[in-house]
Design a protein around this nucleic acid. Structure first.
Lengths: 207, 207
DNA sequence: GGAAAGGGCTAGACAATGTCAAGTATGAAT
DNA sequence: ATTCATACTTGACATTGTCTAGCCCTTTCC
């Protein structure tokens, strides 16, 4: 009955799902509630998504595509070295927390079961590799690039997870400013990268 | 009818829940399935846990206690510097993946809503702070210790998350050995810590 | 000894959920 | 005009979380 314009039900369903995940967590996402928020019958989503995990997989795929885009834009940021990468990752996680929370949950979205999602994840990782290679001054297919990429991904991902899921605020002294503490951590991490790169005798590209 | 020995239903329920989370993910944990696996009626768990999230909170609390214990044991490990900490964190995440997956999910367990869980998390973080202070050679209440602690926690947590939730295996070249790649990352990360500590002119305790 | 009380559990009921199966409308193609 | 697929809606069913009520022990008090 309230079919809005026409045909964009898939988008309506996805947006409703993302909003629910952002505000109430992935567990609270119910097929029927999503349909209700999208203003369609409780079965309409099944026309676009195989089942509940199909929605998660689609959100995850979209998230990896957004992340890859963000990585691509780092090249033209003003921040040098790894700092720009850290800030980009953290910004992505906070601005798209709905996507982010789903992307690394193999139990619900199935990066390995859902083909398109896996491909999007691979694409994002390739962009990360390129970015890291620029930062440390190697080509993308070296062992150094791979190890650095995983290390930096871990670092950024861990920070984003801790910030998003909130155990950080609790630990800080009450007068501490969360944002400046985050920047302290990012500055420390990217400084360490510079030191390591220098010691390895690598030559980061200056852009 | 199958009341096992007697009285330890709480433990049975927790263990069943942990096993379900490990094998099928936190979403698949249903109150009734847990009760079934524990061999009790579908209402028995409610005697020990307020509701579904009460089970998650209890698992999370136990997880933080286990993690704090692990941190305490690092002092007597053979690995020096931060490497022992990384290995400990990763080992914990893999050996107690059921706990680990729940501990950092504010949406389902409520580190902020469940008092005991929050206290356990605080305790674990304090142990981390002590460990980090030993590694970088400061007292626990300095800004350096706090920033290093968050940075190292992020690094270890990110790596554990990526390893556990599997997007890592997919990225590696097929002939690469996951375990040795993980050790590469840990070695790189702890080497960077050594460099940074040296440059800061800090004096790590030698134990 | 017997009654009372409470802990530790079971049983029943209800609304809500995921999903299968079947129906209906709407547009294009023949 | 009839067929036929697309894009839904409606109905049904087993399963879930959780409320309420009950049952069986043990302990305690008189």
């Amino acid at each position: 009955m309230p079919s809005d314009q026409h045909g964009d039900v898939r988008r309506l369903v996805l947006d409703a799902a993302i909003k629910i995940i952002e505000t109430m967590g992935a567990d609270s996402l119910s097929m029927r509630e999503v349909a209700r928020q999208a203003g369609v019958s409780h079965q309409a989503p099944y026309h676009y998504f195989k089942d509940r995990s199909g929605i998660f997989a689609a959100i995850s795929e979209e998230g990896f595509a957004l992340l890859a885009d963000a990585f691509r834009r780092v090249e033209h940021m003003e921040e040098n070295g790894s700092k720009g990468g850290f800030i980009t990752y953290l910004t992505f996680a906070r601005q798209h927390s709905g996507h982010f929370r789903v992307m690394f949950r193999g139990d619900i979205c199935g990066i390995s079961t859902h083909e398109a999602t896996g491909a999007a994840a691979d694409d994002a990782f390739n962009e990360l590799l390129k970015m890291v290679s620029r930062t440390i001054g190697t080509s993308t297919d070296t062992d150094e690039a791979m190890t650095f990429a995983i290390m930096l991904w871990s670092q950024a991902h861990g920070l984003a997870t801790l910030v998003l899921d909130g155990p950080l605020e609790r630990k800080l002294p009450p007068d501490a400013d969360l944002e400046s503490q985050i920047m302290n951590v990012i500055n420390l991490a990217s400084h360490m990268v510079s030191l390591e790169v220098a010691e390895m005798g690598l030559l980061p590209s200056q852009n």
